[in-house]
Design a protein around this nucleic acid. Structure first.
Lengths: 256, 256
DNA sequence: CGGCGTTTTGACAGGCTTCAAGGGCCGTGG
DNA sequence: CCACGGCCCTTGAAGCCTGTCAAAACGCCG
């Protein structure tokens, strides 16, 4: 099928059947009923492969599609006229992206891939079918929207009220926590595909100051981070420095 | 009916029938089909009156209810252990509050009234009925969640990347814009029920610096603000100072 | 080996927070 | 009627935090 409106990325030759979705086994996701699974499988129109650095959803554009992340990392962001960029949050596997574009007229933010990504593609035009035929799934979509808002709320507290050191500590704790839920960590290690510039743009800080703050954090021995590999050495200490731990996961999210 | 879990505020003796809802005539809201209206009327279990300063939804609590604002102003916020407060956004008439609490296990933020408020009360337990019987209304709920996320996104850009003057200008422009949509302005004037402390907490700034920044804004003659009355003198100039206008409204929101 | 993106460091200016204190307004109570 | 307290607004001063500028080191890849 055509993917007009998503210039970056290309349809995948192979499409993973939903029954074999690798995410289904995650304990943080709820299980589908057979008819739900069947519907989702039919709803999924394609699979998209996106390269790192590609902005596959752009502010101001209309999107004919809604996506879920099958694999890879991305981030949502907005830029001001003069180039200042604010990263709003990060998208990981099992996250939904583009809901705003599917529900409203056009996108008010952009989304860029950090790693090679695989996205499940759902046609916006058929979203209403989901709402009318599977209220449980519709509820899940709302759940996902509410959860994303929670994450943004917490992030906003960081930017608005936490000190630089707390901000960095909290964001790293947050990302580690999310990756851990998705079984993307191993022995406390995590492949973190972001640069210090991304950290800075997410935290509302300058690159230089982010670097200096990160250094301060490293000498506490709570974490290690080099060559795109993040290592959690002392989670308790990091939470302490962050001024509070991340809120525990409540309930289990669906994956669409 | 009982309102356990909402200690602040009291059930209203009189309950406005939905057909007579004063908000229905607003052009920024879509019209209900007769059966939708009928359902909403039955879904609405009560009306709640809340006094200024009352926190009627509290972080960490479970809420048995979902609300829409019939009249009055409120704000969503979070506080850190040491008392630092971040205001996440403001709730005005036709906004929904408490959706997170209704969809997830418990609230991750609090909501406090700024003025006397009237809230429409909907039992969380029956939300699923709405989803299963009225997909159009379910879609509206998702629409509202997506829209709120948009507003928060924009606010986050302010806090993270705008200068102090831009922040103040943008927030005031934003609030004026929203109030104007709801026909709460008159001759460019608006009763703005917030203090400079609220501004500061919303913008991630100190009270002192907010005051000084506001002073700088006032001398530009773009706005006036005294005795809780805000006056828009030069909207273009304010948008200029804010570093961009607010995004135009897209589509029409429902009121539940 | 050269180029480029990323990380690191130092210096400096100034935005912003903090501390402190005074003034205005208003409702309460003597 | 006036004193008082509480809340909000205002202002000044001092200094830290943070952004900006500049430049060098590092690592990766063609």
């Amino acid at each position: 099928m055509s993917l007009m409106g998503t210039p970056n990325g290309k349809p995948n030759g192979h499409v993973t059947p939903c029954e074999q979705c690798p995410l289904r086994s995650l304990p943080c996701l709820r299980e589908f009923a057979p008819d739900e699974l069947d519907f989702v499988k039919r709803f999924k129109s394609d699979e998209l492969r996106v390269e790192p650095g590609a902005t596959f959803l752009r502010e101001g554009a209309r999107s004919e599609h809604l996506f879920t992340v099958l694999s890879g990392w991305a981030f949502r962001y907005k830029v001001l006229d003069d180039g200042r960029r604010q990263i709003l949050n990060f998208a990981l596997p099992a996250d939904m992206v583009g809901l705003q574009g599917a529900v409203m007229e056009e996108m008010e933010h952009s989304v860029e891939a950090l790693t090679p990504m695989t996205l499940c593609v759902f046609p916006r035009a058929r979203l209403y079918e989901l709402y009318s035929q599977f209220p449980t799934l519709a509820f899940d979509v709302t759940w996902l929207a509410a959860r994303e808002e929670q994450l943004i709320d917490e992030h906003m507290v960081s930017i608005g009220r936490r000190t630089a050191l707390e901000r960095v500590a909290y964001l790293l704790l947050h990302l580690y926590h999310r990756a851990h839920e998705l079984k993307m960590t191993k022995d406390g290690k995590l492949a973190l595909p972001i640069t210090q510039q991304h950290l800075a743009d997410a935290l509302g800080m300058s690159l230089v100051h982010t670097n200096k703050t990160l250094k301060r954090l490293l000498v506490t021995k709570a974490i290690r981070w080099q060559a795109r590999t993040f290592e959690m050495l002392d989670r308790g200490a990091l939470a302490e420095l962050a001024g509070g731990d991340v809120p525990p996961a409540r309930g289990r999210r669906p994956f669409i």
